[in-house]
């Protein structure tokens, strides 16, 4: 009950966050030099065509009115035409977003498992060689950009060892599954094409791991620090003193309170993976949103830039809501105080 209220309130707040973001995006798009109408029709079109387009695009109206029109269209999913692909921006996003989502979800899963696993190991064997190896990896992982990992992975695992394919989401000879969600792994399972699923998974491993490396390192550091801190808490001494097994103390009573900071940071890491994925997507020729957004920026494709930013903003908002729900599940103090403030 209180959880539902909490959720509804968070969704209402998020709506305002996105509204604010849309205003900022709109203003930036309009302040940028260059006439959108001229850009839309091309440099050689006669002036009267441009004027006509200006009128059609409501560019002669005051800014607030223009924003009103833009927002009304955006709410209906209409962000105009992309200057580069000459297709509706919404269609582009519908095509590229699932590819990125699939990549980021797998990267997020790897970050969670890898980071929490390594962090736990490091805290459990604090100040031994295990801990030192994990810490060394963490420092290296945090400071190395994901594209460096991407290049190394391609060179080693794809080019030299040939364990994984180099580029794309599927091999050429593999039949693509009918599009339902846009996530090839999910769609292939829905269609019962197990071979396609495996092929898609193989294509996912390297780019997802390259993207996840930084987050794995970050999560390992945070998990280790929190756990090491909690290990000296009296409740851990008390649980041990009362005869609970070491495995249950570490794997349950220590793990749960120690996960709270990790989950919060993991959420932010996953959301920002979306926006920093462009170089990795470029290296693996992955038809994703980050790469599309980057191309739009290089081409000053205003309509797609606004749409991509708004979608990324929505991703951050959704991920944050999910993180809040998980943290509230982990920590009764947050859950109960949310219930009390009703």
């Amino acid at each position: 009950m209180s959880m539902l209220n909490f959720l509804v309130r968070r969704i209402i707040y998020s709506f305002f966050v996105l509204l604010g973001l849309s205003i900022v995006i709109f203003i930036i798009a309009r302040i940028m030099p260059g006439d959108p109408a001229r850009m839309a029709v091309g440099a050689r079109a006669p002036q009267w065509v441009v004027d006509q387009i200006r009128e059609q695009m409501h560019l002669n109206d005051p800014l607030p009115v223009q924003y009103g029109y833009w927002l009304a269209d955006a709410v209906h999913g209409d962000f105009g035409l992309s200057l580069v692909t000459q297709r509706p921006v919404t269609a582009d996003i519908r095509e590229f977003f699932p590819a990125s989502l699939e990549l980021v979800l797998v990267a997020g899963l790897l970050s969670a498992l890898g980071g929490i696993g390594l962090g736990t190991l490091s805290a459990r064997y604090k100040d031994t060689w295990v801990d030192n190896v994990v810490r060394l990896f963490s420092y290296a992982g945090v400071v190395t950009p994901s594209f460096v990992f991407a290049i190394f992975f391609v060179l080693i695992f794809a080019w030299e060892l040939k364990w994984f394919p180099v580029i794309g989401r599927l091999s050429e000879q593999t039949p693509a599954p009918p599009v339902v969600t846009g996530l090839i792994t999910v769609d292939s399972l829905l269609a019962g094409q197990f071979g396609t699923f495996l092929d898609a998974l193989k294509h996912l491993v390297l780019p997802a791991l390259a993207l996840a490396m930084g987050a794995i390192a970050q999560e390992a550091r945070i998990t280790r620090a929190t756990m090491a801190d909690n290990l000296s808490k009296d409740y851990i001494a008390a649980e041990r003193a009362l005869g609970i097994s070491e495995r249950e103390v570490t794997g349950r009573f220590l793990l749960k309170p120690s996960l709270i900071p990790t989950v919060s940071i993991l959420g932010l890491d996953i959301a920002s993976t979306f926006s920093i994925a462009f170089l990795v997507e470029l290296i693996f020729n992955w038809p994703g949103l980050a790469r599309y957004g980057m191309q739009s920026m290089l081409n000053k494709d205003l309509n797609s830039i606004s749409a991509v930013i708004l979608v990324l903003g929505a991703v951050f908002v959704v991920v944050n809501i999910i993180v809040d729900i998980i943290v509230a599940q982990l920590d009764p103090r947050i859950r109960l105080s949310a219930a009390r403030s009703e």
Binding site: K233, D234, Y235, A237, A238, E239, R240, A241, L242, G243, I244, S245, F253, K256, P257, I260, L330, D331, P332, R333
Partner: peptide
């Protein structure tokens, strides 16, 4: 483990610190 709990058991000084805050 056979000594802890069944052999010797302990009430810690600060009951607030001795209870795990995230478990019922």
């Amino acid at each position: 483990r056979a000594v802890r709990g069944r052999g010797i058991s302990m009430i810690f000084q600060d009951p607030t610190a001795a209870l795990n805050p995230v478990f019922s």
